[in-house]
Simulated assay, not measured.
Amino acid sequence: MKIGQVASEAEVTIDTVRFYERRGVVPEPARRPSGFREYPASTVERIRMARMLQNLGFTLDEIIEMLHAHDAGTTSCDSEQWRLEGALDRIDTKIAELRRTRRLITATMQECRTGQCRFTAQLDGSPSVNRSADRW
């Protein structure tokens, strides 16, 4: 299978396939006598798996480790549980950060409604209103 077909079936760009090859997500394919890469059909599923794992919050390095462990036959649900817990912890951290940001925006909007807009105060050089550690 040529690189364009792999990219099309995996729903990624050709550059993504090349990047994944360089990083070790997919094994380096054999080459035809003409020099063209010849990818096995399993490359498509491997790329789809990597993308799914990225969507679950895993880093590319983690995905590479997971795939290499799978290739070595050393993976099981029990052996990978810690990776899932780590991804879940990162997601919980992001959710907490987004909630803090939302509270800040809501507070800023309320201040603007009462005429105490920190945007105009800071841009005009006036002292900022209601400064606190978790705000601007």
Rank of each mutant, 00 (worst) to 15 (best):
P27K: 08
P27E: 05
P27N: 09
A30T: 15
R31E: 03
R31S: 02
R32F: 02
S34E: 07
G35L: 11
F36Y: 14
R37Q: 10
R37Y: 09
R37L: 09
E38T: 05
P40E: 06
P40H: 09
P40D: 08
A41N: 05
S42K: 14
S42P: 06
S42G: 10
E45Q: 15
R46L: 05
R46E: 07
I47G: 01
R48F: 01
R48H: 04
M49C: 07
A50W: 07
A50C: 13
A50V: 11
A50I: 10
R51H: 07
R51S: 10
M52I: 08
L53E: 08
Q54A: 11
L56M: 15
F58H: 01
T59H: 00
T59N: 01
T59W: 00
L60D: 03
L60N: 04
L60H: 07
D61M: 04
D61F: 01
E62F: 03
I63Q: 00
I63Y: 02
I64N: 00
I64E: 00
E65Y: 04
M66A: 10
H68N: 11
A69V: 03
H70A: 11
H70P: 00
H70W: 10
D71G: 11
A72K: 15
A72T: 12
G73S: 15
G73N: 14
T74R: 15
T74Y: 04
T75I: 15
T75S: 12
C77D: 08
